[in-house]
Design a protein around this nucleic acid. Structure first.
Length: 659
DNA sequence: TTTGGTAGTT
């Protein structure tokens, strides 16, 4: 044994001072099954482990440090262990393989040394856990079945493995089996099972578990408590999640994060933020998970100022820009219309992954910055990052917004080169690309040649293009296809109605309206949000209870008079607020974004950028009006609707003159 | 002497 260890050290020193060399197979292993797996082409390299990780020897660790180039061959260690089975060394090897998720090495260790410890329950649990953590549940299950004795830890390791592999049903069936086998679950088992229950649709089992935890006092455990909060939060049952959270005897950051994430997933930015403040007041330190949830929740409704405040807090607290936090922060800035801040985050991130590249690409594309999108894409390819379906969606969106039809077709074909299968969203974007450019026949042909069944979004893109280019016949045809798929969606009804209205065909408008009444189609109310002094204000078109109603109306009249003076004649009403029910029903278009804009003009200093968000597409009239307003009032207006960002600046819009 | 809970770009 001593000699063997010495030989390990010798090789370690050698490896440290020279390039790593492939060792030759040592004699004791040539006849084993494990050797076969090693002779595969990729077998050798992956069997190198960091000496600093595999060895517990402190002196060696100091010499080598966490340097991945300093290698030692795991077989040497196994060899030394096999000659004189050493329980501690074997445990260490297995634990290292588990932590590093090195399945191949784990199998080797298992194959060579397990025969010495077959009856050892703890050792069996270690092996079982190694397979489970490495994601090989078949092997984990096999180890479990062959174990002479099992205990709570064995069952828990198996349950956790299934949960973490996403095999939730396999995890939950083990609970009753475990009880039948007369093995008692502990707080480890229960937190894992609760995690599995949170992502299942069936709530019954989770509630049973909740009852079990209450009955046996596990609710006092912080892991179980947090898992319970998380489970209810994932079921979107925030009320119960909150009441469990409030009743928890011991809380930690994870308990807070679970609840904050619950609000974030529901898009409740303000509630997530108020919990964040409460967390700080109670002296809990936010973690990367907290920041990630908060940034995610603030990206959806344009709470830019609050987002910046949390970002500043993160910098001040000295928290590192961990990968996934950087990505959500980048995405928040991009979605809030502040692409410059998104660029800054991107350039300062320590490690960029595919998501980082995709997020900035999507941000550029949605802001109509076509050439930036394509340049970034080329940079991404040049450093060897493999594009995904999301990447191509951003590229096609950029081409569509800038009107580059040929480039769009080229990149659509390029997807094959990278073995990326086009999804229905890519087809939608291609139809949008052709349609926007006025190539309606080509768009229709493209739909007919699609290898997958076109859905409502595909026909919707064509209908939108028909609205843009005033093509009544094709528009009616596209609308008909949509109504066949779903006759209750208000969007296509409104689009079709607008197509007829712009052509002055009022009888057809009336027909669409009556069809909506017959089909009981309810129009989603148009809402616009504007953020002023850290507060988000929302407006609907018939917002007749607003305290500043009269001032807003006067401000808009002032703006629209000026717009008319420069020669623009709007094609719909300038009235912001309906005076009665009849008037409300008669109007075709609502202008909540105009109210938001007028309100922002009243409440912000000249020169500041006005950021508006709308829950449906901006109407052509408002689009034109905002272009003029940006010039006349000397304001930048960034409006985000369901489709894209519209950056109105000095009389033009970043998304091109498509209306 | 081994097992657990929080984030997620389209």
């Amino acid at each position: 044994m001593k000699r063997r260890i010495w030989s390990c050290k010798a090789r370690f020193c050698y490896a440290q001072n020279s390039a790593i060399q492939k060792p030759t197979l040592s004699a004791p292993f040539t006849s084993t099954a494990a050797t076969a797996s090693l002779t595969k082409s990729d077998g050798w390299d992956s069997t190198w482990l960091d000496a600093s990780c595999i060895l517990q020897d402190k002196d060696l660790l100091k010499k080598g440090g966490p340097d991945s180039k300093t290698g030692i061959y795991v077989l040497d260690l196994i060899e030394s262990c096999a000659l004189e089975p050493d329980r501690a060394l074997f445990t260490n090897l297995i634990k290292k393989c588990t932590n590093l998720k090195r399945l191949k090495e784990g199998r080797l260790v298992h194959a060579h040394l397990m025969s010495c410890f077959r009856e050892d329950l703890v050792m069996n649990n270690n092996i079982l856990n190694m397979y489970a953590k490495c994601g090989s549940m078949e092997e984990a299950q096999k180890v479990f079945e062959e174990m002479p004795v099992t205990d709570t830890v064995s069952w828990t390791a198996l349950i956790t493995g299934y949960t973490q592999s996403g095999l939730l049903e396999d995890a939950v069936v083990l609970f009753p089996e475990m009880l039948r086998a007369d093995v008692k679950p502990n707080e480890f088992t229960l937190s894992s099972l609760l995690k599995a229950s949170g992502t299942r649709h069936n709530n019954g089992f989770g509630r049973q578990l909740h009852g079990y935890c209450l009955k046996h006092g596990y609710i006092l455990n912080v892991y179980v408590g947090s898992a319970l909060v998380d489970m209810y939060a994932r079921w979107e049952n925030i009320k119960d999640a909150e009441s469990i959270f409030n009743g928890l005897v011991s809380k930690n950051e994870v308990s807070w994060n679970a609840l904050i994430a619950g609000h974030a997933r529901k898009g409740e930015g303000e509630l997530a933020l108020s919990l964040f403040s409460r967390m700080l007041r109670k002296d809990f330190k936010p973690t990367p998970f907290t920041y990630s949830s908060i940034f995610g929740s603030l990206s959806s409704t344009g709470f830019l100022e609050q987002g910046k405040w949390v970002h500043a807090h993160m910098i001040k607290s000295g928290s590192q820009l961990v990968g996934f936090v950087g990505n959500t922060l980048l995405d928040m800035y991009a979605k809030s219309g502040s692409i410059e801040d998104a660029e800054k985050v991107f350039s300062r991130m320590l490690k960029l992954d595919l998501v980082s590249w995709n997020s900035l690409l999507k941000g550029y594309a949605q802001h109509g910055r076509g050439s930036d999108t394509l340049e970034l894409f080329k940079r991404m390819l040049s450093i060897g990052v493999n594009p995904s379906d999301v990447t191509f969606l951003a590229i096609l969106t950029a081409c569509s917004h800038v009107g580059c039809v040929q480039e769009g077709e080229y990149y659509f074909q390029l997807m094959k080169t990278y073995a990326v299968e086009p999804q229905v969203s890519h087809y939608v974007t291609m139809v949008d690309l052709f349609g926007r450019a006025g190539l309606l026949d080509q768009a229709e042909r493209f739909i007919q040649n699609m290898p997958i069944e076109p859905n409502m979004a595909v026909w919707g893109a064509l209908l939108g293009a028909c609205r843009m280019h005033k093509n009544l016949e094709l528009g009616a045809y596209a609308a008909q296809r949509i109504f066949e798929l779903d006759s209750n969606d208000s969007g296509p009804h409104m689009l079709l109605s607008n197509i007829y209205a712009s052509a002055g065909r009022w009888d057809d408008v009336a027909n669409v309206r009556s069809m909506m009444r017959v089909n009981q189609v309810k129009k989603e109310p148009a809402i616009s949000w504007v953020e002023i002094k850290n507060c988000v204000h929302s407006f609907v078109a018939n917002d007749d209870i607003h305290p500043q109603r009269e001032e807003i109306q006067k401000m808009w009249e002032k703006v629209s008079t000026k717009i008319k003076e420069v020669g623009y004649v709007p094609d719909s009403s300038q009235v912001l607020f309906y005076s009665n029910q009849q008037e409300k029903e008669e109007r075709l278009q609502v202008h909540s974004e105009k109210i938001a804009f007028a309100f922002a003009l009243l409440n912000t200093p000249p020169g500041s950028t006005i950021r508006i968000k709308k829950n449906i597409r901006i109407c052509p009239d408002c689009h034109s009006a905002f272009k003029f307003a940006s010039k006349i009032m000397g304001r930048d207006i960034i409006l985000r609707d369901t489709n894209r960002f519209h950056h109105f600046q000095d009389g033009s819009c970043s998304c091109g003159d498509y209306w």
